[in-house]
């Protein structure tokens, strides 16, 4: 049999991918709007309020503006890599969405459609792989710009991401010890029936949260684009929509890490802890809708938290950043892992 494929399955997955990618783009778009509004509220201003009601069309206007700006590719840059950089940044930002369970399942046309693009055995590791690939977009773009400031920004971003990945990985080991599983779907299911992981791993979550800030290059760890020292950081030479891609990738990363944190520690699409929602007797589609709404509520809270921190805490110095990563977070994560392992061993004996 040549090409014996379940075409409906392909169609279903394709639709899901389209929805997830479009959804993350739209949410990231409105995250830029929310960022400006939150900043405005924290600084006692009004924020964008001209385009559309409450300034709701502002992100569209921003996007159009970026598209119509002149596109400048420096003569002294290596052109292919210069374009590849922002493309990779965007790609790696979107890729994580593939393994996230957005909800349980919906029933359409007599088919059970799970609201997850791929339930792979090693979901958590996949997240790590994509996060570690996220460095390339920044590094390649910064090097291809052929500009010292860009290169400095890129190197900072890369070393920061690598350093904080370690602590993040070790906290994940502790979480995996608790759940005994690497599939994110399984983790969410466990949390639905029992307690949320935040109750088992409050300390681990704290470390994970700090690392997530560093991985997204967000304030207080946004040294890669410290405008006071590096002009604009790794995207100094970029203009037009390629600059937009870099800035936009940051918001998608924020969104994705919010989803990951909600899924790993706060029950994902589980509405309430300690409550078995399946006993309410609602149909699968309603449950899916409630699940997605619950997940999105958690995500919106985390997005707000990202912004709240950005407009509250000033930027770290570079040595402080490295000290925090290597001398504080990694030892703490190791202790957390050892204690978790010890407790699990004790309880099983």
């Amino acid at each position: 049999m040549l090409l014996a494929i379940d075409w409906l399955f392909i169609l279903e997955k394709f639709a899901l991918i389209l929805i997830v990618v479009m959804g993350s783009l739209v949410i990231a778009m409105y995250a830029t709007y929310a960022e400006r509004k939150v900043a405005a509220i924290l600084q006692d201003r009004r924020g964008p309020n001209r385009a559309g009601p409450f300034g709701l069309l502002q992100p569209v206007a921003d996007g159009l503006k970026l598209f119509f700006k002149e596109e400048i590719i420096p003569d002294f840059s290596s052109k292919f890599l210069f374009i590849l950089g922002p493309a990779l940044a965007m790609l790696t930002a979107i890729m994580t969405g593939a393994i996230i369970p957005w909800g349980d399942k919906v029933q359409l046309f007599g088919r059970d459609i799970p609201l997850q693009i791929a339930d792979i055995d090693v979901g958590v590791l996949y997240v790590f792989a994509v996060v570690s690939l996220g460095v390339y977009g920044i590094m390649i773009g910064s090097w291809a710009s052929n500009n010292k400031y860009s290169l400095m920004g890129g190197m900072r971003a890369a070393s920061q991401i690598i350093s904080y990945e370690l602590a993040m990985g070790i906290t994940m080991i502790a979480l995996i010890l608790v759940t005994g599983n690497l599939s994110i779907k399984e983790m969410v299911l466990q949390q639905q029936h029992g307690w949320w992981n935040i109750f088992y791993q409050p300390f681990g979550f704290l470390i994970f949260l700090i690392c997530a800030f560093a991985e997204c290059n967000r304030t207080p760890f946004d040294l890669a684009e410290a405008e006071s020292e590096l002009v604009g950081g790794y995207h100094t030479e970029y203009s037009s929509m390629k600059l937009g891609f870099y800035l936009f990738a940051e918001y998608i990363n924020m969104f994705v890490s919010s989803v990951i944190m909600s899924s790993l520690y706060f029950g994902g699409y589980d509405l309430l802890p300690f409550v078995d929602e399946s006993k309410w007797g609602l149909s699968a589609n309603w449950m899916a809708l409630i699940g997605i709404a619950a997940l999105m509520a958690k995500v919106v809270f985390f997005l707000f938290f990202f912004m709240w921190v950005r407009w509250t805490i000033p930027r770290f110095r570079y040595d402080q950043l490295m000290n925090l990563g290597w001398r504080v977070l990694i030892p703490l994560a190791l202790i957390n892992m050892l204690v978790t392992g010890g407790v699990i061993l004790y309880l099983h004996k």
Partner: peptide
């Protein structure tokens, strides 16, 4: 072999080659 595939990417593409690129670029 999902585990091998992902670990291959994490270790080689995500860690070792990043360091290579680091050195070459610097």
């Amino acid at each position: 072999a999902q585990f091998l595939a992902i670990v291959n990417i994490i270790v080689y593409a995500g860690a070792i080659m990043v360091l290579f690129l680091f050195v070459v670029m610097l």
